[in-house]
Design a protein around this nucleic acid. Structure first.
Lengths: 202, 202
DNA sequence: TGAGTTTTAGATCGTATGTTCTAGAATGGA
DNA sequence: TCCATTCTAGAACATACGATCTAAAACTCA
């Protein structure tokens, strides 16, 4: 051992995520980061490697914080409630996002992943996990009767994933509550076990 | 008048769109553009103004080409077919997009619009138009009985817009036919006039 | 033809970029 | 205490950036 670090790696990552998240990869310079974090560029290169590796670590950190616990938190709820709570949280998060940072994973999916195989894999993998979470919810709901059985669980999981991504894109330019809450109503109706015509008849 | 231009503005915009579309705003330099187009930077600044204005013109050109005629082309069809054809075309376009450029409007919505009021307005306006197209389709379909009346047309229009954006994001990292075609099946089912339980009963 | 105007080619400007280097400061173990 | 090691501060490097300038070329109109 020798001279110890003067900073906490977790705090640094938190600040780095903040900047990469808000401005993206290209529009964030190492000097921006260094100043925002309160480190020298040398320390950044020493600790995290080059910019590419630094962004990767920031994204991993973000994913861990944002998806890691959330999936677990909802998985214990009854399936239909889990899906509903998930989307409500996303909408609230989007509406209170005054800086319009959106979702860092979605941002990475569009800015970095298409030109970088490593990020392509990372992003795809997280999306697969979210899709799997939805599928488990739908399957459980279809078993216990709380979710409509007319659609294949895998199809519905894809629909939910697509809707999630759509909300995150839409909210970034049109963060309107009516719009976001309106667009998930038909989706929720799709999940309801009693059919739509029943409601018309009754 | 004096010395005439040696290039065709439309061809130049076409090439500029190509590069901005593929690499985004930040990752495309004026020199990149000049080389790709076959112009000098002076000519670019002369003709289009600065980089910001050039991107704006490229985006306008893209929107005009991509949305202008498409909406009109589908508007004449029966409403449910119009929506179906629209999504099928988007999926085919996404699957054949070997360069993974996605949709330039969606890319702009995430990279440029959040930090730039001008682009914020431009992107939002196009999204409003697409939403309005979907709403007109749904309203017409609900009138002629080809589309389910259980959901408000405005809600359904939002759902369709969200799904569209979701597909364009998802396809950029996971361009899998099964996934994309699967996720719109429940959406189409939502539009069907005969309810899901009818199908179960019959 | 020649005056006036616009476009071109390419050098040039100042600044910003990602990254590395040099110097010194701060620690642990012998 | 002194050496080896790892850290920090900030200058430095080569290159790239957006943007402009200079000069020559190409045209219109008189």
């Amino acid at each position: 051992m020798a001279r110890p670090r003067e900073f906490d790696e977790e705090n640094v990552l938190l600040l780095a995520v903040e900047r990469f998240w808000e401005h993206g990869y290209e529009a964030t310079s190492i000097r921006d980061l260094a100043q925002a974090i309160g480190l020298t560029t040398a320390s950044i290169y020493n600790t995290f490697g080059d910019k590419h590796a630094f962004y990767r670590k920031a994204l991993d950190f973000y994913v861990e914080r944002s998806f890691g616990d959330r999936v677990g938190r909802f998985e214990t709820k009854p399936p239909r409630e889990a899906i509903g709570a998930f989307f409500n949280e996303i909408i609230e998060r989007s509406l209170s996002d005054t800086k319009r940072k959106g979702c860092m994973l979605v941002n990475s999916a569009l800015e970095v992943a298409p030109h970088d195989d490593e990020f392509q894999r990372v992003v795809a993998q997280v999306l697969v996990q979210v899709e799997a979470f939805f599928r488990r919810c739908v399957e459980r709901g279809q078993e216990d009767g709380s979710i409509n059985r007319c659609q294949k669980a895998s199809d519905m999981a894809g629909t939910l994933l697509g809707t999630l991504l759509g909300i995150r894109v839409l909210a970034r330019t049109r963060p309107e509550r009516d719009l976001l809450e309106g667009l998930i109503r038909p989706i929720f109706a799709l999940l309801e076990p009693q059919s739509q015509s029943d409601k018309l008849i009754s």
